[in-house]
Amino acid sequence: MVTTTPLEEELRLLAGSVPDPELPVLTLQELGVLRSVEVLGPGRVEVELTPTYTGCPAIGTMVADIEQVLHDHGIPDVSVRTVLAPAWSTDDISAEGRRKLAEFGIAPPRPGGPAGPVALSLAIRCPHCGSTDTELLSRFSSTACKALRRCASCREPFDHFKEL
């Protein structure tokens, strides 16, 4: 997208304000999955969306929700395309998104993605008590994008949005 019209800006804000179906504390904009909103013609808009994980089952609901919010804004013809490249990364989650995740009880992903031993050595902070003394229980949790951990200080289990 080389230039963005004011209408496209407005529609992007609208589409970006849609909450994530599985993590409603985050908007799609904060999750970083909304790639572009383009007006193709009068009443005709194309949205590009990228999945967090290839098999993310929430993508269908995201598409329907985006269509709905744009329909409600008077755009009759909305097509939402799913794009894979460039691949989504947890680094695409905004700072505000990370803050909200922690507030919601989910440890946010560490910056820099999963590559290399450096990221792995950084401590993951318990979102409940703030302790960095936490241990991995399972690499996979309630959804593919989360790992299950336990805090050694307050003993509470918690989800960690794992680096991708």
Partner: peptide
């Protein structure tokens, strides 16, 4: 239980790849 969840999540990743 954790393995139930882990294997199902791996299956879901693979299913997503298969669909594409």
């Amino acid at each position: 239980l954790e393995e139930d969840v882990a294997l199902a999540n791996i299956a879901l990743d693979l299913l997503g790849q298969a669909r594409v």
